[in-house]
């Protein structure tokens, strides 16, 4: 394998891994906040991609207007999602009810997207275009790297950094962590759990929406975009299902493995990702990292 091919495969893999990492981080945030695995994570991303496509292609908004308006829609989507899928079922006698509701939400989001925007995939322009209007590339030696992938990596890293800072450093973030770790005690001290849960849903929906915007030029905007979440699930499990750090590293690993396997056996890239997952489940079922809360016997 030539170095230039290696480099471009690596960049593609890290970029896709970054998208999975953002989805995976959102999964962990929701699991911690409300104890539920969200099977509509990828569909929130898909819906976000449609919202962006609509604002960009139909309303032809410039970027400086598109970003704030898209954020408002993402946040709204998060709030609606919380109050329809999670809130009515939060006291259900068995917690699986809410998980199944997220599966239902996944179907609903896909169908609603089809009703509003039709079933034809829409194509979005890359974020950076060259003078002929084609996707711009960065030439390093003989390797040509698509700017779109480099932007995905940069934006993804920035978001992951900002969110970890939010939770580790800010007062609000600590309150959110407290509410996640022991909602009963947090409530008794006066932490308003409805606000912390709502904030978590808003953050997750915004992150998913940004993912949608980033991957739309690569995969086109289509109602099946949500299936990318399966890679995020694999990455989160490989990472250890407890820490954001584990989820991010696990998802990056999935992205890289997937990218290099297209090289060797392109028809089987899904197989390699899940083979990796099975290997981990057999030989290291606890994943790469433990959560920071240990078991004190």
């Amino acid at each position: 394998m030539s170095p230039s091919l290696f480099l471009s495969l690596l960049v593609n893999g890290v970029a896709m891994g970054m998208v999975y990492a953002l989805l995976g981080m959102g999964l962990i945030l929701l699991v911690r906040a409300v104890g539920i695995l969200n099977f509509a994570q990828g569909d929130l991303m898909m819906f976000g991609a449609y919202i962006c496509a609509c604002l960009l292609l139909d309303f032809e908004l410039p970027l400086y207007l598109l970003i704030p308006i898209a954020f408002i829609w993402f946040a709204l989507l998060g709030v609606i999602f919380m109050f329809t899928i999670y809130w009515p079922l939060r006291k259900a006698t068995y917690s699986q009810a809410t998980i199944i509701a997220t599966m239902g939400a996944s179907i609903i989001l896909q169908e609603v997207a089809k009703i509003i925007w039709g079933s034809q995939p829409r194509s979005m322009p890359h974020l950076v275009l060259n003078s002929e209007g084609d996707p711009a590339v960065l030439q390093i030696g003989s390797a040509s790297l698509q700017w779109q992938y480099l932007i995905i990596i940069a934006v993804g890293a920035l978001i992951i950094f900002l969110i970890t800072q939010l939770f580790e450093k800010l007062y609000v973030g600590k309150m959110m962590q407290a509410a996640c770790q022991d909602s009963y005690a947090a409530n008794l001290l006066g932490v308003p759990s409805i606000l912390t849960i709502c904030a978590t849903y808003i953050i997750v929906a915004i992150v998913c929406g940004i993912c949608g915007y980033l991957v739309a030029p690569v995969f086109m905007v289509r109602s099946t975009l949500g299936t990318l979440q399966l890679r995020a699930f694999a990455g989160v499990v490989i990472g250890g299902f407890g820490s954001i750090k584990g989820a991010v590293i696990g998802c990056l690993l999935v992205g890289i493995v997937e990218s290099f396997s297209t090289m060797a056996f392109s028809g089987y890239k899904d197989v390699t990702v899940f083979l990796l997952l099975i290997i981990f489940l057999v030989f290291r079922p606890t994943g790469l990292f433990k959560g920071k809360i240990g078991d004190k016997a």
Binding site: K174, Q177, Q181, D182, Y184, A185, A186, V191, K292, I293
Partner: peptide, 16 residues
């Protein structure tokens, strides 16, 4: 007791 297990002693006090 119900301390917040993943927060440090100082952070637990902050939540108070």
């Amino acid at each position: 007791r119900h301390v917040f297990p993943g927060l440090t002693v100082k952070e637990n006090l902050e939540v108070g």
